[in-house]
Design a protein around this nucleic acid. Structure first.
Lengths: 157, 157
DNA sequence: GTAATTGCAAATGGTTTGCATGTAA
DNA sequence: TTACATGCAAACCATTTGCAATTAC
């Protein structure tokens, strides 16, 4: 993840989607896409706006919202809300077999990604048993990360 | 779930929490508690307000919010937001071993609960491997329920 | 040329809060 | 009698939308 190949793939998917829908490749969209591809993961609209404005200071709030909605629709971005503040966006997984979920530290708000085939499989089994056709899922584990645990232990001493 | 025993248990936990914090047992709180215990699961603040007002028409919006925050804090309610509209509340599970998660139909918005020990265990394993101390988790599967699938099939015919 | 796109500001929806009044203990 | 609780309206925050001006194709 994060290499040129991934970006190319996602860029291609975006281009295809825009072509199919008759959408236009504008300067703002290109700037926001670049900020999104090159910025940190789990980025917010606000953070993205700051980065995009370094390229083009006239970019507006609503445009970033609209553009990220577009990215999500076409499948190159996925959104998560981890229960505090605003929605965060990340590059989409490249396929079902690459899907990842998150552990979120309630103290420092750091985010760790994990992938677990056992859970994915089990989930499918449950859905099938209940006659459910799965579209997507959200699996978030909240807790205290290793770092914050030792910081706490230190404080107590 | 839903039997008198469960309610008694939760009521006791609520009373204990209020006593400990020096909070008062008011008419509004009793009314809202009763509406929550006897109403449908996955209820919204709005729905709860309507029900509570059948008992006491002067109950305000903010009071229901504040009361359900109290219920959540003391552990008798748990909240979920399934991505559309407002937060929904349900009676808390009675222990870690009873924890359940949700399947949500994107078409009819029905909610199915499931419990899976394999997933719970696997989740713990992942957290431990990453040095994470788990506080809570959220596992939601979104898709199309059996009913809506057959309704779709019928439409196509 | 024309339909898509943008920026802005205003609107929205869910939730929280300040404050004067009411009430449980 | 004195905190705590309540109702109301206003504030808040993230997000969406209407619209006139702009721009890609």
């Amino acid at each position: 993840m994060g290499d040129a190949t991934t970006h190319d793939l996602l860029q291609t998917r975006l281009d295809a989607y825009m072509a199919k829908k008759g959408l236009r490749s504008t300067g703002q969209r290109r700037t926001i896409a670049s900020a999104f591809f090159n910025g940190p993961s789990h980025i917010t609209i606000e953070e993205l706006l700051v980065r995009a404005r370094q390229e083009d200071s006239r970019i507006g709030y609503a445009t970033v919202y609209r553009t990220l909605k577009l990215f999500t629709e076409c499948g190159i971005a996925s959104e998560h809300n981890f229960g505090d503040g605003p929605t965060r966006f990340e590059l989409a997984d490249e396929g079902d077999d690459h899907h990842h979920d998150h552990l979120i530290c309630l103290e420092c708000r750091s985010i760790i990604e994990f992938h677990d085939e056992t859970i994915e499989t089990q989930q499918e089994k449950i859905a099938k048993r209940l006659g459910f056709e799965v579209t997507s899922h959200k699996h978030e584990i909240y807790g205290i990360c290793a770092n914050c645990q030792s910081a706490r232990a230190k404080k107590k001493r």
